[in-house]
Amino acid sequence: MKMESRTRLQTWLPLIVLVVLVLLVGLYDRTFFSAGNMLEVTADTMTLFLMASGVTLVIMIGGIDLSVQAVASMTSCILAVYLPRFGIFAIPLAVIGGVIAGFAGGYVSTRLRIPSFIATLAVSGVVLSAGNWFSETKSVVIPGELSQTYLTWAVGDFLGVPNEIWVGVAFLLVLSAVLGLTPFGRLVRGIGAQERAVMASGIDVDRIKIAAYTLSGTMAGVAGIVMAARLGSGSPTLANEFLLPAIACIVVGGTAITGGVGSIWRTFVGALIVQVVRIGMTFIGVSVFAQQIVFGFILVAAVAVTMDRAKVLVIK
């Protein structure tokens, strides 16, 4: 009974925290509550959410993907560089860049049996070089008219709601369905909870893991495209400083880094929490730089709250 009420609390806690934070910030500045502002805040959060949504799967299998910010930067470069040349096809090309990077991280980690944080860190080095190669180390501007033609799906609005939100919600629904309804989703949960039991039940665990890393790279790629569309340019450092908030919003949402427990909507809520905290700090005058400190500590604190210590005997 006690355990059950504890799990229930853990399920709803992030949502409660979000509501409380919104109320706090709203009390400080009433204009925060306006519909326009709310939509804007949500739209601003979507790139972060997109990046974090894929990493959620990797964290659920008990790994980590430290390459996402490099991947997002790279795909922004691919998009910006090839949009003038290939038109609409630059978008799938950029996504494929993300797919390959994610697959590489997963392959290196599982098949070569290298701990995921090192494998993805190493891959991010390669990806960073690739981004620099695509963009020739420069920031590449996307011409306005091309953006008008090809990227309005990401930056325009529809029914008065910014398209970033539609994109974010669409991926929220699709990934939630993948996690909740498909065998892949169930096995992701199972591997995070008890990998050896899943393996002993005759399942090719490596394949599922590689797929999770690949999805993570893919979502980072999509995030990079939306980011480039919003900013009107691609650059090999575009998504720098995104990794920490991305991991923060996953754990703040209640996904445990020990694996097995988590969901995409939690990351969605977590991303909103991170964004509201950021706005709140700006309101009360915490400098943008100092916010990084706060996120560092929030990350560690959230990990401490969510992780399942019973599962790991030796903490390294």
């Binding site: 991991i247 560092g296 990350l299 560690v300």
Partner: peptide, 13 residues
């Protein structure tokens, strides 16, 4: 808390 998480957070901070 696993060291990679602790030190990642601390490094950013």
């Amino acid at each position: 808390i696993p060291s990679f998480m602790t030190t990642l957070g601390m490094g950013f901070a």
